[in-house]
């Protein structure tokens, strides 16, 4: 792997390798000494053109636990907001000797552009580009699903050792919400499908992209229909931007209340999920909009665990991109 730009670039073997590596990383995070010397001397730049404290600190923790030096470069208050282009920023990072750039950008394709334009030659890790991709989010979601749902003792709290080396074949995963604007949805559809899971998108027609017919997924337009029709092993509630649910002519939905009525996960709907099903959310949650506190805080919810799995998956990604010889593999 030279870059991690999109989950659609990953083969089944690539994906399983990342998940298996993440398992080993997670094991080290249960020790008293969680720091590893692996990436000593490497410099990782977190280049954030869009605010996302959660993602940034997750990458920062991952890099630091592997002993890499971390430089945070955020668009606010930097030369970027003074009109410096992505190109000049990249040339600067190149001159500073960045071995890897973790980039979050508002423009779809920005990570790919950075990786392939020849502006710099370090590894590029996409931490979310516009409404396109957010590969480490999908990887941590797949990791969480595998840990809980694959193997002899599958179910909440399953011992994950049995999952090692396996894909997600046989699982049915529901993604609920705004697919149109969601890089999390796009990344998950590609990755989960590659890993053999069946994906059901549960979304209002206004928030499903035109052209979705080629995606290897089922699409249904109501959460009740989905719960009736499918035995979901995991349900992932996508974050809904309130402004998309109201605002007159530009709204995709009549009102937040109506969204909650048709697509929100509450206690009643939760109880209609199969016994073993887990509840996920990429965060940050809008409690009371796409998910109620009862569902979010229930024992079936693995939302908090997703966060710590995120660090392990990002450690694995950084390891696989940076530990080997340059341009290796």
């Amino acid at each position: 792997m030279k870059h991690l730009l999109s989950t659609s670039d990953l083969s089944r073997e690539d994906a399983i390798r990342i998940l298996d590596t993440a398992e080993q990383m997670a094991a080290t995070q249960e020790r008293e000494i969680r720091k590893l010397p692996t990436l000593r001397g490497k410099t990782v730049v977190n280049l954030f053109f869009e605010d996302s404290t959660r993602t940034r600190i997750s990458f920062e923790a991952a890099a630091k636990r592997l002993s890499a030096d971390v430089i945070n470069f955020s668009a606010k208050g930097s030369s970027v907001s003074k009109g410096e282009s992505l190109k000049d920023t990249a040339l600067t990072l190149q001159a500073m000797g960045a071995d890897a750039v973790v980039i979050r950008h508002w423009a779809s394709g920005a990570a790919e552009r950075l990786a392939e334009s020849g502006w710099m030659h370090g590894a590029v890790l996409n931490a979310g580009d516009g409404t396109h991709q957010h590969p480490t989010q999908a990887l941590l979601d797949a990791y969480t699903m595998r840990k809980h749902l694959i193997g002899a003792e599958a179910g909440p709290g399953a011992h994950f050792k049995t999952a090692t080396g396996n894909d997600l074949a046989g699982l049915t995963i529901g993604l609920v919400g705004d697919v149109l604007h969601s890089r999390v949805a796009r990344s998950n559809v590609a990755l989960l499908t590659t890993l053999g899971a069946k994906v059901v998108l549960v979304s209002p027609p206004t928030l499903v992209p035109v052209g979705i017919e080629t995606w290897p997924v089922d699409v249904v337009h109501g959460l009740d229909v989905a719960l009736e029709r499918y035995d979901l092993d995991a349900i992932m509630m996508l974050r809904v931007q309130r402004e998309r649910m109201s605002g007159g002519g530009n709204a995709f939905f009549p009102s937040p209340a109506e969204y909650t009525r048709l697509f929100g996960l509450d206690g009643d709907r939760m109880r209609r999920l199969p016994e073993h099903a887990i509840i996920m959310h990429p965060g940050p949650m809008n409690r009371g909009l796409e998910i109620t506190a009862e569902a979010a805080d229930s024992p079936r919810s693995v939302i908090v665990e997703q966060v710590s799995n995120g660090v392990a998956v990002r450690m694995a990604s950084l390891y696989l991109l940076l530990a080997g010889e340059e341009g290796g593999e």
Binding site: T21, L36, P37, A323, E326, G328
Partner: peptide, 21 residues
């Protein structure tokens, strides 16, 4: 005891898969 992440020659080889500790 997997020692991969403690090796001093990681950068000299293609990325190694991690073993289990």
């Amino acid at each position: 005891l997997d020692i991969t992440m403690y090796r001093d020659d990681l950068a000299k080889h293609p990325t190694r898969n991690l073993g289990t500790t």
